[in-house]
Design a protein around this nucleic acid. Sequence first.
DNA 1: GGCGAGTGTCGAAGCGCTTCGACCGGCTAT
DNA 2: ATAGCCGGTCGAAGCGCTTCGACACTCGCC
Lengths: 337, 337
Amino acid sequence: MVTLAEVARHAGVSASTVSYVLSGKRSISLATRQRVEESIRRLGYHPHAGARALASSRSNIIALMVPLRTDMYVPVMMEIAIAVTTTARTHGYDVLLLTGEEGPDAVRRVTGSGLAEAMILMDVELDDERLPLLRATDQPSVLIGLPAETDGLTCVDLDFEATGALCVEHLAALGHRDIAVIGEAPAVYERHTGFAERTLLGLRDRSRRLGLGLLHRPCAGGYDALALTLARIFDERPGTTGFVVQNESAVEPLLALLRQQGRAVPEDVSVVAVCPEQVALHASVRLTSVAVPAQEMGRHAVEQLVAKLGGRGSDEVVLLAPELTVRASSGPVPARP
Amino acid sequence: MVTLAEVARHAGVSASTVSYVLSGKRSISLATRQRVEESIRRLGYHPHAGARALASSRSNIIALMVPLRTDMYVPVMMEIAIAVTTTARTHGYDVLLLTGEEGPDAVRRVTGSGLAEAMILMDVELDDERLPLLRATDQPSVLIGLPAETDGLTCVDLDFEATGALCVEHLAALGHRDIAVIGEAPAVYERHTGFAERTLLGLRDRSRRLGLGLLHRPCAGGYDALALTLARIFDERPGTTGFVVQNESAVEPLLALLRQQGRAVPEDVSVVAVCPEQVALHASVRLTSVAVPAQEMGRHAVEQLVAKLGGRGSDEVVLLAPELTVRASSGPVPARP
DNA sequence: GGCGAGTGTCGAAGCGCTTCGACCGGCTAT
DNA sequence: ATAGCCGGTCGAAGCGCTTCGACACTCGCC
């Protein structure tokens, strides 16, 4: 392994000079700098990460805690993880991958050992048990998702409330008066994952203001569960012409069942989905949808974090504005027969 | 920050004793050990990762390089990544996430800086440009996937050749004589990602031996592309009753189109998929399938790596045996009318 | 009763880097 | 001319840990 000292000897300067060339923290004459850089290249020198971390107490690593559960929004998680990693690299940071499995202990371990200088948490629950630890430490952190209480925390998330409102507005503009919401599995609402509730809030609020009827039904997903849910919806509100779906595994069943019942999409009923872009594009009808902006979330999270590490930036909640893309699943309400 | 020295002082022993308590590399009397452990707990001590890495030249970190492309097998990638992370933790290692973006440079950087002691590469191509580097370094590594030349490398993958054979066998046992294979997009074959070709090899070989007809058609996926592909298949081989699909985004379109054409699954035609478990379970017909054993692959990769780090283990190719799960999409060939 | 073989503990020497203060010329300003 | 300054460089002191050799004991044994 090539060390700083060897580079220094090779370039005929002292070790500290090489260090300053590398960090740029003191001015170095052009001639010297070039000589040192040449030596570095020739010897194939790479600074030892551990030594660096020890001497500077900065590891250049940020931790990313992903949920262990792989049952929901997996592609989104992956996309976020990748966006985080690539963005972090552009700022000179590497990413340490942690799973939710260890829970709060992982936070303690990573914080305590100086392994990572900062962390990003995904899949934050409303009352997450890791939050007290984050508040207690002076290590910067950013949450992707919104807990119940955001005081003293930095969060990045899609504005799900606006998302709900946007869906209702789109359907209302097309003339729909009765809307049904097919939501996530009941368990998701019970677990108090914030996004589902916030979407609902937006949906309810906007439909009330616009004077629309709104029926919300959680649904486990899959064909059987959805068949039941759908039957109940049409039973209760036969005039339903608009659907909002927020549940990946209900999308295809919904389309299939509607087709099967002779209700054409978008001629007879319109469907708006809140889902990853991939799902919207690969469904049997290309879906009008609000996408979860995974890349942007990852990028934002890292940039907030880097700002905090640089002493800039403060605790704030960044809610990304939703964007609705009109595709083939929504259209004007049919003339009442 | 609490240091080793403070723990030592608190427990009334020397620093080296504390270190030995922690590492267990020398025997320590019960009394002393307990006293030290108590001090560690009381002070909330966590060893400094950088200092450790510097002194021992072992960082306890392994790097995981995931593909940047998020267009294929994403849930599988995620599942592997999570399995790698949790398995690594049980061996005391953390995982550094790298994307393919940096390419070979990432390998150089991580290897050179001692950031990670070993690495796992996913999505290895037949003639991967990172391989020469891996062969040159003495840092252990494991590939998930199979390159063209495996000399001096350790690889873990599903035995795709056996997978192909297994699919054919299953269909043959049910009496099918003419089988069509709907493969990945042409680009995948052109990129020479090994798995697709190896599957095909197994399919061809076994069907030849069993005297079955086999028609292979790459397909981009989606409804339109598949409609075309399907039409051609039935055009060329009207007697086709068995399908093997190896393309996530062709699964649902295939089922829909078959249904639409009045061919019932599994009464008229049987479908066997090579796909993630999730896809097989959530399809509109529960699919008879060979799953990609993501968890097992991740686990195996880590265990190989840990063995190598421990001086045990050697370069070898581990091919996991495929398992075919019979579900609702395959059945006996219909009596010829 | 002294010797070899453990067993448990300690001190000190680094690991490779960063960073602080000091130093040394060659400037400009007085 | 001399004081003061600044850009450029160096030496040395750590950062917190591991690990090696040394040392002091306690045994059991001839």
